[in-house]
Amino acid sequence: MKAPAFSYVRAESIEHALELLSRHGSAAKILSGGQSLLPALNLRLAVPAILIDIGRLDELRGIKLRDDIVAIGALTRHADLLTSEDISASLPLLRQAAAHVAHPAIRNRGTIGGNLAHADPASEFPACMLALEARMVIRSEGGERRVNARDFFRGIYETALEPHELLTAIEVPRPQPGSRTYFHEFVRRSGDYAMTGLAALAHVDGAQLGDLRLSYFAIGDRPHLARATAYLVGVDITAERIAEAQASLDAELDPPDDQQASAAMRRHFARLLLSRCVADVLERPELAMEVVR
């Protein structure tokens, strides 16, 4: 299980990386942390002609707080998200999610940009970005563009990135004060990919939900933002409301049936996560109770 032969260039600057991307196109692969790419290489599932190592580009690293935006450099590692006080204070959802990504040694090298560009539908961060309405900052030799998370993830391992483009940063709007987050995933073993998971952002308005974004992962070919929240926002939440939302959620999902979980299990987990999330953010544990038949 040895990687196939490939060429390797260490990018000296973003411009250098973009020039290399432009030259090599889809024959090239960007190497950032390598925690998804290296397994694929070792298993010979990926056979790039050249790796462009962006790992030394310090300008892609770090978390910057602006007025209403948190800008996260693409090379920011999962471990950084887990320990950054700025992230804990501004985007606790990312901190919660990071704790579930693989294991410490992986989190020390895996990067947020690499994770998002890889677009594994069972991965935690894409769903978080969808919940947080993040924008992907994408550069190419032609310039810079921003793509909303909902347009970025296009399918299994598919994104809006063109072969000559580089994801350089993620801009995350700072949730309004008083926002609540919820993160949970069903995994067989700690650190495994989820059978189904939910990253959620809610704004609680008295006893009601002013806003609710339920972003599911491992439920389809990309993270899924539930439309069923329409049943829950701006109304008094009751068990009936939750049941309506769950039924609506069920109708909008088309989950896969695989070794990890059947489609029916994923639907079941998705419904459970909905009620548990609402109960959690409203601090009404009775809403999560499900009568066991």
Binding site: R10, Q35, L38, N42, P104, A105, R109
Partner: peptide, 27 residues
């Protein structure tokens, strides 16, 4: 395992633990 799952190859790089099967020597 050579695909980053078993942890047997864990070592330290710049003071932090990494999976050395998921790190290229050039890195």
């Amino acid at each position: 395992c050579e695909h980053g799952v078993c942890g047997a190859c864990t070592m330290r790089v710049d003071g932090e633990i990494v999976r050395s099967c998921l790190t290229l020597a050039v890195q």
